[in-house]
Design a protein around this nucleic acid. Sequence first.
DNA 1: TTGAAAGCGCTAACAC
DNA 2: GTGTTAGCGCTTTCAA
Lengths: 342, 342
Amino acid sequence: MAVTIKDVAKLANVAPSTVSRVIADSPRISEATKRKVNEAMGKLGYHPNLNARSLASQSTQTIGLVMPSSGDVVFQNPFFPTVLQGISEGAHEKKYALHMTTGKSEKETLEAVVEMVQGKRVDGMILLKSKVEDKIISYLLKRNFPFVLIGKPYKNVEEITHVDNDNFRAMQEATEHLIMQGHHQIAFIGGCLELVVTVERLLGYERALRNAGIELKNEYIIHEEFLREGGQEAVKELMSLENPPTALVVVDDFMALGVLNTLDELGISVPEDISIVSFNNVLLSEMVKPPLTSVDINIFDLGYQASKNLIQKIENSDEPIKRIIIPHKLIERSSCCHLKNK
Amino acid sequence: MAVTIKDVAKLANVAPSTVSRVIADSPRISEATKRKVNEAMGKLGYHPNLNARSLASQSTQTIGLVMPSSGDVVFQNPFFPTVLQGISEGAHEKKYALHMTTGKSEKETLEAVVEMVQGKRVDGMILLKSKVEDKIISYLLKRNFPFVLIGKPYKNVEEITHVDNDNFRAMQEATEHLIMQGHHQIAFIGGCLELVVTVERLLGYERALRNAGIELKNEYIIHEEFLREGGQEAVKELMSLENPPTALVVVDDFMALGVLNTLDELGISVPEDISIVSFNNVLLSEMVKPPLTSVDINIFDLGYQASKNLIQKIENSDEPIKRIIIPHKLIERSSCCHLKNK
DNA sequence: TTGAAAGCGCTAACAC
DNA sequence: GTGTTAGCGCTTTCAA
């Protein structure tokens, strides 16, 4: 068996509780015994058993996370690793670890969460996306379990600490950027409408058009899970409309790359024939041709603030509900240009 | 306080141990009490405390993982998420969870591992890369703690279960592919030489050239951590040699994209002026222009097999040491062509 | 400032 | 088949 607190206590000639106090760096312990105990720990190569500690102290110093299931589109693009990196960084700073599981279905995912929460494996949870009707959120809310959502909750906004971009404004600005370049025929290429982020951005797009007195056209709005094949068709259809768009807003750089390829096949050049603004500003966006004008939403920070704030909440149970808005920024590159008058 | 096994026992009029047996689905328990207990669990909304279980049973059903630290290049490309996805999938199938931490330095990383291992937070570990001198490996080996390495160990190959590609052959074949297309001046663009994978591939490259009776040139071999700026210079230098290469092998698609851009700037076209074979075959490789001929190394499977085999090892302590080679495959696209005779 | 002792919630060996 | 009981290794009152 491994070396325990008792072994250390024996060697240092103190009680186990004293050792425990030394570990916790309790103030009311003499320097002398502190040294004595530390020495014994060193000599024995002692390391606390964290399960025992968690059991006794009802805290785990770990944050729970549910990964998007394999096969989820999310995985093919850098959002997930980057946000994870941010989460991990924030956790690491406060000496928290991460505990993750996957769920293939919504049911499995919920089960995974229940297991973590009721199984006392984690002190808090970070949720990576908010569905329109989210059982996980209801569950956590009901149990009053600390969690932070990355993204905007569909409901109960006032009760949920969340970190998000101002996706409405971000998309509005992206659209306005195109409008200011003279574009009136601007199409929206977005993802799954069940995701709140898509809804928000769509609204921002619509607002920008409306503000500019531009008529909304249903056929200019596309929702595709796509990477590869899926979207190709949609883009082709879009471009063969009677009045094809002269500009596109695309909700993700990776999608934009797919769009770029389809346009290339169609012999349409960017930005000469059509302008594009996309989102996320991942490394990719500056490496493709043409480099993409893209809205940087600070993915890393989204994750970093999520774990940072979750930990605050864990450690101080009457921390107020917060809404943290991570700033975005339009990074101009070469995929947009002024609409030439015809 | 949460509902415990005792509450269930009381309600079902049985002993706590009986409840425990029902949970473990012990064979020697009557259907009647099984039902009775299950009913009580349902009624109370019981969920086992996993810390208590781990403490008592000395097992956690979780796998440890150390993430590449933020800032690590690894994060900017899809290798990490994909391998994580594979690991997660394999773990999920056997109802294992993942526990992860980050380390910024080698020292921190080792500490993180020690904490997981001695802290009894995990039953086994997956290592994502093998350094030439790897303290983590020595540590785990010394403690005889179950672990699986993704990649090839630098030493102690016979004692370490690892899952890897045959990187030597993969690179040899990639190089031969170019040689068969008439190329003799083939440069190698690789990553950090401290990583065993780089060494292996370099050897495969050299073997292919040697087999074909082609002289090795030092100036044809580049090692760059690069993405962006770093590599640009290197590629420019390479192309301004007296005898610039007519083909490149690049160890990563993402790097290849960087190379592609630099070449474009130099007015060199692919594949007309220079051919490229890269590695990993991530989605990106078919989306860039020109689509990259790339060696698919089955990243997902690397992760999947790693957790699969780690779990076997955890559950059966005299499982033999294994070496699992994941097949690779050259996917031909448009970044290579026959060398025109001059 | 330190020690003794009672749990945290579970499993498992042993008894019946 | 089921109950009793002794831990797993730690934290945390309560006393001294």
